[in-house]
Design a protein around this nucleic acid. Structure first.
Lengths: 209, 209
DNA sequence: GTCTATACGGCGATAGAC
DNA sequence: GTCTATCGCCGTATAGAC
């Protein structure tokens, strides 16, 4: 069995992902973690601190592998610019591959990100804090791949990308209903190639000077 | 002053949109509505019923105007098929135009939709219930505009559309941060033309034969 | 339709023994 | 590190007078 602190984080991650911060009590989390309520306050300062630690546990690693993916794409083009599709692939593929390969470990965290990205309350603040340094690096690469593009077009294109990516993270089962079972929310392998293709075409259309 | 029932719905809509179902208490809603707590239970059965009534109040009208927009596009093409961009415009423009023209009335409802669409808990069920009849109608039109396309490609394309659209509804302020103020979440006029252009290019790329 | 008053349980958080 | 016990507050919901 994992150490208590890890078990609490696992339980909190899953419950926050499914019901939101306010929709879950410390008591529910600790029941799922099979530990006493008071231990939550030994290992974490407060419910809010617990939430922050859930967020922080995985975010650095995710940003690292995506930065590495971008650097590798750039290394493959010492004398010219990578294509839009390569850059977007470096942004989305590492995330989606993790999810496809180890769904149990990553799915709840991704669902949490999906909720936060679409939360009018503090979504903008949290997403910017955790991801914008990396995103700016990608936007710069896209600027070079799409010379003379209007920056506004580029930012709105990224915004569309972000919405498409995080709705995929949410795995709500809606596409299962809509398609009559032909597509499955959890079938991430089906999205890995489709997403960069779809989004790159959008970028090229909107950002052609 | 509006009748009490309307004031409760207005207050609930705004607070649910910002903090989620569990993040808001009946007490907070009734304080905002300037009415006594017990009146919530005179006008509605329960907190959950209040939430359902908030959802139902506007959904039919939205689906109506979008169906009308699609029918008009089709009328303009008695002898051929409308373009992908026309169809997607009929899906997104009526919504975005309402939001741009009467932001105060619609913004909170749209933020609620954004949250629900990305909620792993009951998002798939609710979105399918309220919107899939209309969406299926649009998917059929897209099938005719993109003959021989793989249905899976079409459904995933719609999924990307849905994520991009609802993140726009969320108005989280993130694009304000990321762009250093060059773009604003609430500047919907900037998105009305960009969104169909971006998304139609994605559909055409992914669903070509 | 609107108010006062209240029931009862779960909430986040803490003190202190071991 | 882990447990028992407890505090005071706020949650949804209802009864009943006017």
């Amino acid at each position: 069995m994992h150490p208590t602190r890890e078990r609490i984080l696992d339980a909190a991650e899953e419950l926050f992902a499914h019901h939101g911060f306010e929709g879950v009590s410390i008591r529910q989390i600790m029941t799922k973690a099979e530990a006493d309520v008071s231990l939550a306050y030994y290992h974490f300062e407060s419910k809010k601190d617990l939430f922050d630690q859930v967020m922080l546990r995985r975010v650095e690693y995710l940003n690292e592998i995506r930065l590495k993916a971008l650097e590798e794409v750039e290394k493959r083009h010492p004398d010219d610019e990578p294509t839009v599709e390569e850059i977007i692939g470096a942004f989305t593929r590492p995330l989606l591959s993790l999810l496809a390969e180890d769904h149990d470990q990553w799915s709840h965290y991704y669902q949490l990100i999906a909720q936060i990205n679409n939360s009018p309350d503090r979504g903008g603040e949290l997403m910017s804090r955790y991801f914008d340094p990396l995103v700016s690096r990608f936007i710069d690469a896209l600027k070079r791949a799409l010379p003379d593009s209007d920056p506004e077009d580029l930012y709105w294109s990224y915004h569309f990308l972000s919405g498409a990516l995080t709705l995929t993270f949410a795995e709500t089962g809606r596409i299962d209903n809509l398609s009559g079972g032909a597509c499955k929310s959890t079938d991430i392998a089906s999205v890995i190639d489709r997403m960069p293709a779809f989004l790159a075409a959008g970028f090229r259309q909107l950002c052609k000077h």
